[in-house]
Amino acid sequence: MKITGIEDLHVASALGHYSFLKIATDAGLVGWAEFNESGSTRPISALIKASGEQLIGKDPLPVQQIVTQLYQQSIQAPGGLAQRANAAIEMALWDIKGKSLGLPVHALFGGPVRDRIQVYWSHCGSYRIQAGEKLGVKPIRTPDDIAELGAEVKARGFKGLKTNCFNLVGGQLTRQMQGYGRQPTHAALNLERHTLDGIVATLRAFREGAGPEMNLHLDSNVHFRSEGYIRIARAIERFDMTWLEMDMWDAQALADVRSKSPVPIASLEQIVGRRNFRPFFERGAVDFAIVDLLWNGWSEGLKVAAMAESFEINCAPHNYHGHLSSAISAHFCALIPNIKVMETDIDSSPWRDDLFLTEVQYEDGDMLVPFGPGWGMDVNESAARKYAADH
């Protein structure tokens, strides 16, 4: 069997777009991967094409050999966009490998530890504040709207939800996006009173609407510095949080935040490669390690999880893309013993389900692990081309 073609597809969504990689073979098998390309990460497609050209005509089945070679070829620019491109290629190759053997990817690594994974509703309220009309749902404007959404999450059977940081001004909620350079006075990353008020009001409303048994997570992203994260942690302790999530590049600074936080700390979604995870583990910087499979790649993700287990740390996948990403994350959660919970986006473009040939199965707040060959989640190519993004 030989690789005959590599193609990237980009699909419009209400919040950006979905990106897929298709690797075709002369045996008729097609491997699919999902990757994240937007804003400053748009060159990933070009990197995939540059790396993928050398694979045309080669056997796709010795995946680890190919992955090792791709890693070594990008060693002078470790991590970052090069690794994300390599990860996409690797994911598609594992899909081919599984399909060639008629087995799910997790079966290639010893079979699943579990066949269902508890999930939490991610970006809960965040997307409805940002683009409710485009998503075809009621927009969020006030804490009362948040309480109503919390009741919806509970009614739909989810056991956990994760929201983000909102500003509260004049009774109205808006998203806090300063860490991404999207609002005035962003450079200092200070935690202002109207933001802390919004965070507290949001979590109070979610707790009231969803009830005392709902697992609450707050993702504060990259919006503040250590002082701000510590103030947030102390302010939200009253809501019995599952975790406070943030992203920091310095292991010692994150360890300091954790030492002063009365709630568990989750982090590391932006870290790529086990060598970069290690100092955070060694300094005891996190209670939970967030691992992005689409950025690290499958093999590296498994190695990070194994290293985390040696430090008695449970993992949770960073997963906010399409259903193929969810399938890949579910294989990861099924395989590793040290899993906490899985992220998933429920609010999304009305046509997201049309992009895939397999339905994601949720039951009692869990996602059922796919057992079809490969990732068990093929892209509907005709639908992807129908909703193609202007890329």
Rank of each mutant, 00 (worst) to 15 (best):
I199L: 03
E213Q: 15
R207D: 00
S220V: 13
D145H: 13
R193A: 12
A201W: 13
V169Y: 05
R116S: 13
S126C: 10
N167Y: 13
G136A: 05
A201Y: 12
R156Y: 02
F158Q: 03
Q178W: 08
L203Y: 07
S220D: 05
Q118E: 14
G136T: 10
L189S: 08
G132S: 09
C165P: 05
M177Y: 09
I117M: 14
E152R: 14
D145V: 02
E213S: 14
R114W: 14
F158Y: 15
N190K: 15
F158R: 06
L196P: 11
E208K: 15
L216N: 05
G136L: 07
Q183Y: 01
Y180H: 12
K99W: 07
G111C: 02
T163C: 11
S220I: 02
V153L: 01
E148H: 12
Q118T: 14
Q183F: 09
G132A: 06
K138G: 02
R225D: 02
P184S: 06
I140T: 09
R225V: 13
Y229Q: 01
F206G: 06
H217W: 15
V105I: 15
D115N: 15
H217D: 02
R204L: 05
W121S: 09
N164A: 06
P112F: 07
K134Q: 12
A131R: 14
P104E: 03
F109I: 09
R207Q: 10
D219S: 01
V113A: 12
S220A: 15
